[in-house]
């Protein structure tokens, strides 16, 4: 069983604290490392993958420090965020080279198996420089899987993938998690994490903001009031009709934006109420946008709670 332990780890760059006194344990199964851009996710993953020493604290795999320890790479597969990957090699040559570098007994068989896992055999003879972002991501995955590692670390793996590729990769990661591997991926997209990981670790501004089962954390988020910005053909009449319902906590008319700012208590109730009320009153809705659904606001709510 492979467990990554981050023990009171801080990392600073000059005066900037990127990671601040974070402790967490990443065990078997899929874990999502969630946080807004610049929260310290990549810094944490770099430390977990042995490419950055912590300024304080310790990062270890099964009790063995990771920094300056090449032997850990027998157990770790790494999918970096950056795209460069020897563009002059074909997909096959790239994955095969990775298998050889691991010193595997039968590198060709391992490369074939890994490319099969990510379903990239069809493009394995093309140069990786000609691949789309999603294809590159999958070949990077193959190179990380070639030695059948117990731990898989992925830095923003879904960036640039189309929905189909995203689903494929999610399915793959789910399978690895179910097989008992320790899979950690970072993302700043809430929905990605929601679909894939039961367990999440949330970092905000370098600090560990939340840890645990996604549903429990999500419930914290859904209990808070939701704010919407709504523009319609008759804002005042719409406001009057909406306030009569219990799922609406407050409405303000924003003269500058020429829109209604609505605070809803019951997310589900409000999303069905709004179109119904508008239809019944013969009012056309021009804009309905969540005003505080950005990840940052979700996080600030989490931190505040």
């Amino acid at each position: 069983m492979a467990v990554i332990t981050i023990d009171r780890v801080s990392r600073w760059f000059g005066n900037v604290v990127a990671v601040n006194d974070v402790s967490m344990q990443i065990g078997p199964g899929v874990t999502g490392l969630l946080g807004p851009n610049g929260a310290g996710k990549s810094t944490l993953i770099h430390m977990m993958s042995g490419f950055l020493p912590p300024s304080a604290g310790e990062v270890a795999l099964d009790g063995v420090p990771i920094w300056r320890n090449q032997e850990v790479y027998r157990a770790i597969g790494l999918v970096p965020e950056r795209e460069s990957m020897y563009d002059y090699l074909t997909g096959w040559e790239f994955v095969l080279a990775n298998a050889e570098l691991h010193g595997l007994a039968d590198p060709a068989a391992a490369a074939r198996r890994a490319l099969g896992l990510v379903e990239m055999e069809y493009a394995q003879d093309r140069k990786t420089g000609t691949y789309s972002k999603g294809m590159k991501q999958r070949v990077k995955m193959a190179s990380a899987l070639v030695h059948d590692p117990a731990v898989l670390l992925l830095d923003e793996p879904f960036n640039g993938m189309d929905p189909r590729q995203r689903l494929q990769l999610m399915e793959l990661l789910r399978r690895f998690g179910a097989e008992g591997r320790t899979v950690l991926f970072s993302s700043h997209i809430l929905e990605e994490v929601e679909q894939l990981a039961r367990h999440i670790e949330v970092v905000v501004a370098g600090r560990h903001a939340a840890s645990g089962d996604f549903r429990r954390i999500r419930r914290l988020m859904t209990n808070r009031p939701h704010r919407y910005l709504v523009r319609s053909s008759d804002d005042r009449r719409l406001a009057a009709a909406l306030i009569a319902d219990g799922s609406t906590a407050g409405i303000e008319f924003d003269g500058q934006e020429r829109a209604l700012r609505i605070q809803a208590v019951d997310f589900q109730g409000f999303t069905t109420l709004l179109p119904r009320v508008a239809k019944d009153a013969g009012i056309r809705l021009y804009t309905v946008s969540p005003a505080d659904e950005s990840l940052e606001s979700v996080f600030s709510y989490l931190v505040a709670s």
Partner: peptide, 12 residues
């Protein structure tokens, strides 16, 4: 360009 990662993340 960062591709050195693929050499360094190996037990070499």
């Amino acid at each position: 360009d960062g591709s050195i990662v693929y050499l360094l993340a190996k037990p070499l």
